[in-house]
Each structure stands twice: as C-alpha cells, then as structure tokens.
Simulated assay, not measured.
Amino acid sequence: MLRFVSQIDTDPSTAHDPLYVMFHGYGNDESEMIRILDAVYRQDDRADVASQPTRRPNYLSFRGTVDRPYMGGSYWYPDGCGVDERRRACSTIGDAVVSLLDAGMFSNRRTILVGFSQGGYLSYRMVVEHPTLFDAAILLSPSFTGETDTILASDTRCFLAYGTEDRTIPPADQLTARRVLNTAGHLEYHEYAGMGHAICEQEISDIRMFVDR
C-alpha cells in the first residue's frame, strides 16, 4: 500500500507548475524529501528575487513500503537483496505511482522525480520502465548495484550527484550510474568535494538551477 503526503496547489494559475514525485532513502520517511525540496524553494537574498512571492512547490512525497522495526523509518527494498528482487519491488511501486499520476489534476504538469539513495535507485528504475512519462529525474547519491548492462533510452533529463567521500555507494556503482545515464544523452552530473552520503548546500543550489531551466 502506498503511503504519501502531498501539497498540491489547485489554483488554475499554477496548473503548469512542476509536480515533484519524491522517494526517501533507507531508514528515513517522507519528511526527508520535503526538507530537501523546501530548501530548494526557500527564498534567498538575491535582489532579483527579493520582491517575488515565495514559490509553493507541488509534491507527492512517498513513504517506503516496508517499515523498519524498532529503529523507525522505512525502506523500499531489503539491504543485500538480489538485483531481480530489487527490480521487482521497484516495478510494483513504480506501476502504482504511475497509476496515481494518471489522475486529471496532474495531467498538465511537468513531473519531476526526486530520490535519495534507495529512493534515487527507485526513481531511476521508474525512468527505465516508463521512459516517456517523466520530464526530469533528480538522483541524489543513488544506489546502482546490478545495473551494468542496462541501456537507458529516454528523453528524461537527469541530475546525478555524489559526494567524493561517499562510502555507502561503492565507486564502481557510481561510475556505472554515470555511464548508464550518460547513454541517453540528457545527463547533468555533479560531484561534491568532501561530502559523504548526504546533501550539501551547493547541491541544493545546483538542483534549484536545474529545475528552473
């Protein structure tokens, strides 16, 4: 069963604003991605935006389908599971999300996937299996084990980011992610010096510029 929180502005004047479809990392919950999106949209001190109203992003932020006992938080697929099991889990979730997005209130919006770690992998698999549906995918430190033979054929713009000190995602998997996403020809890649398996302020700024294009 899909669990999510949403913020959708029904004002007709915002009908073409993007819709963010977001998936958190292992052991977290839907609030993780809302914090990231809020940071992307927070009003800054630049003179060219100071007089503009604060934008209110539209989003669906999903909670992992499996709850983590004792420690809290959720996840999308078990640690250490095989590639086939991981892909099946992502397919089931992705198909359910796509069915939800078929609602009329979402029909005219640009749809942007956002995912961190496990959620980044899930977002990537949704692009693989639904290559014409999403306008962009923001993949933050995604897991990428087992994807060496994947060929991505999609016009979806992809933002891929890793920290140079990320010890959670092996370097070989990071290289695979970059190579596979590059095959489609729509990749924007960022690497952040000194950052681990996390999000940094420069990354937030780069995401803001990516979504504004």
Rank of each mutant, 00 (worst) to 15 (best):
N108S: 14
S6C: 04
R178P: 03
Y192R: 11
W76L: 12
D67F: 07
S141R: 06
C81S: 15
T156M: 05
G64E: 06
F116R: 00
R86T: 14
E188C: 04
S154E: 01
T164A: 08
G27L: 13
P18V: 05
Q52G: 01
A172L: 00
M22V: 02
L113D: 12
Q43N: 03
N108W: 04
Y77S: 03
N28C: 08
D11K: 07
D44K: 13
T168S: 03
G196E: 06
P171S: 04
R179M: 00
V5M: 02
P142L: 10
A136N: 00
T183P: 07
S6W: 03
E203P: 07
R87S: 15
D17F: 14
L19F: 07
Q52N: 12
R63N: 12
N28T: 04
Y70D: 14
T164H: 04
D206G: 14
Y192E: 01
S51K: 11
Y162A: 05
A184E: 04
P12K: 04
C200L: 08
L160Y: 04
I169L: 01
M22L: 05
L139Y: 08
S107R: 11
I34R: 10
C200E: 09
A15C: 05
D166W: 02
A177D: 08
G27W: 07
R178T: 09
D79A: 15
R167F: 05
Q7A: 07
D166K: 00
F106V: 13
R213C: 14
T132F: 02
M195H: 06
H130K: 12
